[in-house]
Simulated assay, not measured.
Amino acid sequence: MTLKDKTIIVTGASSGIGERLAHQIASQGGNLLLTARSEEKLTNLQTELKELYSIDCRIYKADLLDLNAWKSALNKMISDVPRIDAIINNAGFGIFDKVEEESKWEDTENMFRLNVFALIQGIQQLLPHFISNRAGHIVNIASQAGKISTPKSASYAATKHAVIGFSNALRLEVEDYGIYVTSVNLGPVATNFFHVADPSGTYQKSVSNI
């Protein structure tokens, strides 16, 4: 399906996979609603995309760990444009440790808050818009970690299991409205994700042999 003149939300858009998705969508004539924590990075990306592709690109600074901030940002998106055609829930992070070595409950809680709760909240908030249009596409960036167990990824994998399970059930609920739901189960990708998730590099080395 063509992306020309479609309006698409991308979360976690300021770097890595989100940034590349934004370029890919813009290169095909899609308009963008981008959100991330860094306003400076979003502004730079917005300028670049407009100059390269002559598309409409709007930015919304929000830390999705703050569910109220995410709710406010999404409300503004819905009010700013007449129609939203898709959302790509890309924002997420992981901390990789063995369960016995996990020392910060806050890390586990924040993984669920961002990877699962923010994703579900955003979809619930946007769903009436899609239903009223009898169209829409929800793309949830999950992970092979949600399908294949590996050491040191128990909590992160649990969040991605949740995303896959939620996506599979949601797909059945909304298919009669003409709404599509896709879960994308990536393997390891060379981005800054692993600088936070696995500073030692041992997890990356272990999964590279799978």
Results as ranks from 00 to 15, higher is better:
E173A: 10
S132G: 03
R20Y: 12
P128M: 13
P188F: 07
V116L: 02
Q46S: 12
H23Y: 08
N209A: 13
V99D: 05
A36S: 14
P82C: 07
N75H: 14
F96T: 05
S200F: 07
I179W: 03
G122L: 07
I9S: 04
A13R: 00
H195R: 02
N115A: 09
V184F: 00
Y180Q: 13
G92I: 11
D5Y: 09
K76Y: 04
L64E: 10
A197Y: 05
N68P: 02
S132L: 09
K160M: 12
G136R: 11
S183H: 14
I55A: 01
G146I: 10
I148Y: 09
G201F: 03
P188Q: 09
K6R: 15
K50N: 04
I210D: 08
K98C: 08
T182E: 00
L52G: 01
S206Q: 15
I148H: 06
G18P: 12
M111H: 02
K147F: 04
L33P: 07
L127A: 06
S79Q: 14
T43H: 13
A91K: 02
I17S: 06
T150D: 03
A86C: 10
P128H: 05
K98S: 13
S167Q: 12
H129N: 13
N185D: 15
L172M: 13
Y177F: 13
V196E: 15
V184D: 01
R20I: 08
I210E: 10
Y180A: 11
L21V: 10
S14L: 08
L127E: 02
G201R: 09
L33D: 10
E100A: 14
S14M: 07
L114W: 03
E101C: 14
T7V: 12
G92H: 06
K205F: 02
N31H: 14
M111V: 00
D198L: 11
E101M: 15
V181N: 01
A162E: 00
W105G: 03
T202S: 14
L67D: 05
